[in-house]
Design a protein around this nucleic acid. Structure first.
Lengths: 344, 344
DNA sequence: TTGTACGCGTTATCAC
DNA sequence: GTGATAACGCGTACAA
């Protein structure tokens, strides 16, 4: 079952003209007489002619579409980034093909293989938490596929990158807890493979150092799937709760880890913030409706998407090879609500 | 800046063969000798040859991609549906192009125009809340573009449709409130243009009728943008609160209306469920973390996506014109939590 | 001002 | 068993 559409040929035949005349008329070439142009245009409208983008792509070796790879669309942060990307892309006549790696390296490879077999002009990607092998991304980069990283970037690949100032965000969050008299601040991080995990941890460590608090390594936990595996969060939280010297506050370094942890604490009837102060990364509006309302580190997701898309379109449309790559670091927003206010 | 990839021609030239031989060898045709095949295959692997999907599309008049139009990706319900669509599409070698109408008829038209100018093989759509003119969808349908509707379907267009059993869902939710001794149950609906709005309202009305409660039309409100316009929800809620005979419970007929209303009640310090019982459509996991935990009507979103995609692929791949169209109606899940439990 | 011929990458058809 | 050619739809260099 297929639906057929009109082509230039159809117009040419119907009007007794050649395809080139029709083509030129439709592109408003000055070498076509107004009379013919009008005739052709009118007929084109009449039969609702649309140029075939596939034929154009083949000819011009571009598809006017960009690929986006995120770990999960349903994650608010990513869907907001995608909104940003989309808004810029559409404005510039580009299509956006969105795909999800679901935190799997294997799926990410498949997607990259598929997308880049020539059906996209450029790529915007936040790598999966599993990804520790960048050869296929490197190959694509060497083949000069325009790539922009955001959020989970690959440090070793030299191209545009858009991130949140992760270190600052976590530094401020941790400092906020310290100033609220929390004494044993634990942290649950995502996969240590990821550069953002290391940066975020650095913010935590620096805040402790600046406030002359010695690091207790038993208070640092990792979730290698960034919280998308519910059990790993459960293990991390319960391990912390089992410690002889329990933490009295938590910094949570990924959206899913944050909500999952909050849910576990609720289930375990741990009072927040009474027994446990909580602040964590999360981009959902819903966290303000939690009880207690959740303090969060919020990333400027929409803006990140806009920036990433703008940079990518620059790369795609630049005539010569770009060598001056930017690292855009946007300030996160620290939203203090009840969950991190120590009443002691 | 562009990246070039190997073509059949390159292989042919390098090996001193014709393009047709190479093409046949790569498709494992029996009319090519094993020796030649091996030589060609090895070289193809060596230079990492990938067939150009654009050329294939042009030749085969299909793009192996399907378009999806939703009002907003960031809406959990839609992102879950998209997950379902994606899972089926990828399994069958199809690409998914996701777009957002942002509840705007104009944007929806643009998207349809763009997508269907031949760059997709089929369409899965949940129309925008503004859409009351279906001519362009009808035209596409007449041109035999395979279309599957989900959620917000167009009744007048005869094709596959996947919906939740909206009437039942709202019926049960309303009945639950009645059984919990709520006496004045108000309802905030989405745009009355939408078939789902009418169905959902019918569920409410039927539940009232079955329990011999007379309908009070002052308790029925509409949000024409489905709650994506914050103010319209604010107006609806405040109007209800201003009534001389205030409602003591609310049924909310769209995801955004639900969370927005909840947020307003919280801000206005209306006790839920003490002063106002609440139940509404919502697909986010987060609602269980609200205080009070929110009772919801949950749609089987992932499954809806799977079903819609499966039906669409059937349409696309069917040899003859399909005339037997299905209306799949999936059961919603009514999740009772605190917000709808009357303690009186 | 308009028409002819070619190429983008691939495969089907026909020829050798 | 392999090669040449046409076709998919479009735009453009070259011809007229």
């Amino acid at each position: 079952m297929k639906f057929e559409a009109a082509t230039i040929k159809d117009i040419a035949k119907a009007l007794g003209l050649s395809t080139s005349t029709v083509s030129r008329a439709l592109r408003d070439s000055h070498e076509i007489s107004e009379a013919t142009k009008k005739k052709i245009r009118d007929y084109a409208v009449e039969i609702n002619y649309r140029p075939n983008p596939v034929a154009l792509s083949l000819k011009e070796k571009r598809t006017l579409s960009i690929g986006v790879v995120v770990s999960e669309i349903a994650n608010t942060f990513f869907s907001q980034v995608i909104n940003g990307i989309e808004s810029i892309a559409y404005k510039n006549g580009y299509n956006v093909i969105i795909t999800q790696s679901r935190e799997s390296l294997e799926r990410e490879q498949m997607i990259l293989d598929y997308l880049t077999s020539r059906s996209i002009d450029g790529l915007i990607i936040s790598i999966s938490s599993e990804t520790n092998d960048f050869t296929s991304l490197k190959q694509l980069h060497e083949k000069r596929l325009p790539i922009v990283f955001f959020d989970r970037v690959v440090e070793e690949i030299n191209t545009h990158k858009v991130i949140t100032d992760n270190l600052q965000g976590v530094y401020q969050a941790t400092q906020h807890l310290i100033q609220n008299k929390f004494k044993r601040i634990a942290i649950i991080a995502s996969n240590p493979n990821l550069a953002i995990t290391r940066e975020r941890l650095a913010g935590y460590l620096q805040a402790l150092a600046d406030h002359k608090i010695t690091v207790d390594h038993s208070l640092i936990r990792y979730c290698s799937h960034g919280g998308s595996d519910v059990e790993e969060v459960e293990i991390a939280v319960k391990d912390l709760l089992k410690l002889k010297k329990k933490p009295d506050a938590l910094v949570l370094l990924a959206d899913k880890i944050t909500t999952e942890t909050f849910s576990i604490l609720k289930r375990e009837k741990i009072k927040v913030p009474g027994e446990m102060g909580v602040i964590g990364f999360n981009n959902s509006k819903y966290t303000s409706l939690f009880a207690p309302a959740l303090s969060v580190i919020r990333q400027p997701a929409f803006e990140m998407g806009e920036k990433a898309a703008t940079l990518l379109l620059n790369l795609i449309e630049s005539k010569r090879a770009v060598t001056d790559f930017k690292l855009e670091s946007l300030a996160p927003e620290i939203i203090i609500r009840e969950s991190s206010q120590n009443s002691r």
